[in-house]
């Protein structure tokens, strides 16, 4: 089960924006506990990837809202506007992640309140597996902070999740 792979270095501009600390939230061993939204794209009915991501993030001490299967863009945007999460993790494995992801990030970044929210995407983003450099660049240019593609498997994601905590919380 491949969920994600290589980290792409985050956008330097956004990386410079400090994450808000929620007063009274517990710390993880790596930094403050973050509020995270785990979600997928509108056309994707797979959920085991989302369950896994939730467990990984919770084991790191973060608070997760998991939106489940086939999340419409409007629902995710409303959720983000309502709860202002520290991090949004989009995972898609049905091959539509690239197209749906481009549309989705456009809608998120169109909200001034969410211009600096960290949003990452990963999974099987293209129908024929790995979408390649060009696709990653397009996703990054459209506003994703990091892109993870199917490939070397689950180890990469676990490691990423901890790394992400450190980078997001410093």
């Amino acid at each position: 089960m491949d969920l994600a792979t290589e980290e792409s270095p985050g956008d330097a501009r956004r990386a410079a924006v400090p994450v808000r600390r929620h007063p009274g939230t517990p710390d993880t061993p790596y930094g403050p506990s973050l509020s995270v939204v785990v979600t997928t794209v509108a056309s994707d009915a797979h959920t085991w990837n989302l369950v896994f991501l939730q467990l990984v993030l919770e084991e790191l001490g973060h608070r997760v809202v998991n939106l489940g299967a086939c999340v419409p863009d409007e629902l995710l945007v409303a959720q983000c506007l309502g709860t202002r999460p520290d991090l949004v993790v989009v995972s898609s494995v049905n091959g539509h992640g690239f197209h749906d992801g481009l549309r989705l990030i456009g809608r998120i970044r169109a909200c001034p309140e969410l211009a600096d929210t960290r949003v990452v995407i990963g999974g099987k983003l293209g129908i024929n597996g790995v979408g390649g450099r060009e696709c990653r660049d397009q996703l990054r240019a459209a506003g994703f902070d990091a892109i993870f593609e199917e490939g070397t498997g689950i180890l990469e994601f676990r490691s990423f999740a901890k790394q992400l905590t450190m980078s997001v919380s410093t």
Binding site: R133, G151, L155, E156, F160
Partner: peptide, 20 residues
């Protein structure tokens, strides 16, 4: 057949797995 290959040198080197 599906065994993956490394990404670009920059991506491979900056990957948290590679670093670990």
């Amino acid at each position: 057949a599906r065994r993956p290959l490394p990404g670009s040198p920059g991506e491979h080197l900056s990957s948290p797995v590679t670093r670990t």
